[in-house]
Design a protein around this nucleic acid. Sequence first.
DNA 1: GGGACAGTTCGGTGGCCGCCGAACTGTGGC
DNA 2: GCCACAGTTCGGCGGCCACCGAACTGTCCC
Lengths: 232, 232
Amino acid sequence: MSLVQTAGLLADRTRAEFCLALLDGRAWTAGELARHAGVSAATASEQLTRLIDGGLLAEERQGRHRYVRLAGPAVASLIEELSSFGPAGTRPRSAGLRESSRLSAEARGRTCYDHLAGQLGVGVSDALLRRGLVSDEDGLSLTASGRSWFAAQDIAIEPAPAPRRSTRPVLRGCLDWTERRMHLGGLVGAALCRTAFERGWVERIGTGRALRLTTLGVRDFTEPLGLARPAA
Amino acid sequence: MSLVQTAGLLADRTRAEFCLALLDGRAWTAGELARHAGVSAATASEQLTRLIDGGLLAEERQGRHRYVRLAGPAVASLIEELSSFGPAGTRPRSAGLRESSRLSAEARGRTCYDHLAGQLGVGVSDALLRRGLVSDEDGLSLTASGRSWFAAQDIAIEPAPAPRRSTRPVLRGCLDWTERRMHLGGLVGAALCRTAFERGWVERIGTGRALRLTTLGVRDFTEPLGLARPAA
DNA sequence: GGGACAGTTCGGTGGCCGCCGAACTGTGGC
DNA sequence: GCCACAGTTCGGCGGCCACCGAACTGTCCC
């Protein structure tokens, strides 16, 4: 795969739509993606095969279903970087009720591939900054007290997955499109999100990418960090 | 600009060739790029306009010349990320004498947008790791002693350029295509490279992207770091 | 086994876009 | 003023590729 080929994969409306949908970090079936992007099953099947051959997506077949997901964090960060280009143009026009309620749930909290985003993600990010666990002078980094805080919480910041030496930074600012604020990505963001799921601090709402903060999460996660309790 | 449009800009052989050439961090004229990519002046002109409109390139007109360069570090990192995808496929076949002498000069030392690459870049990167100024456990980061070393050398790690809050990490591993080794990018890599030019530690060889380490550079830069003196 | 359904393969079509030569504009040197 | 040269604009050509419908394979359920 060369630069041209990889870019070409993302240079198509349909394939890009697939990838953006998969940015929630979950596995979708081919049919779901086809409906989501408004194309026939035939087209979806072809395009998914291309994305998989190009190494952007990974597939898992289960019975008559073909599940696909992003091939890894590098792909997610690539897509985010490409999306965040230019003068951050146009906001999509207003939507129906059902749609806008889904959107507001996602605005409160959601996953952005493997880390937390939305108001929850931004809030956590701000809290860590306020408490000096993370520093944003000359770029984002974990401070010494930040490292000990993570150790004290028993949250492991996974070193790079065994086989391939990763270039993934410990901490990475991720600028999302709904909030215009930065939230924490990178290994630290992924570790926080993984822990939040494992300890029941957050849970999925239905089948979307939206998240709900549980009462356990308020008690053990956001209140200790000094976050205001969310409005709804 | 959307994801699709930005990706589309890089999904063309000619435009990609331009961007890869500009990865040396310097400004090229439209004609130089046309010859480099083997297309007519007409084609180069059109494609450059597209790249500029899309925000990937910046232009500067001087008399009858049109100089273009990458619009910023974010573009360089985007291109590197896109290039480093997939199983790092095929190495270009061998070249003529003139070409291969240029290549070996570039292998010794060159710029990779705004930081040092080639054997020089990798060597510096290794030396900083060996001395504990940089850590690569769970991702790359600058250690406390690393921060004081930079301060002691009076090398400023520039905070993000004023207007826009940058997501550029302090330290970023950059995996280059000639060396298969990682070298230092990010704000730290840029600061080192800038300093190396300012203090005369390195200089350009001719008009290419290749670098020569000066005797001053050996004395004040690589020897203090414990690098072996390069073969040639 | 039959029917519903998820996904795939294939052929044909339409549109987009990268390319060039030719004619043109503008700059610099003599 | 003239010529050389860098870059631009335009029209037209050619190739690539995303799309669909239709026919097919494979899975699950009754």
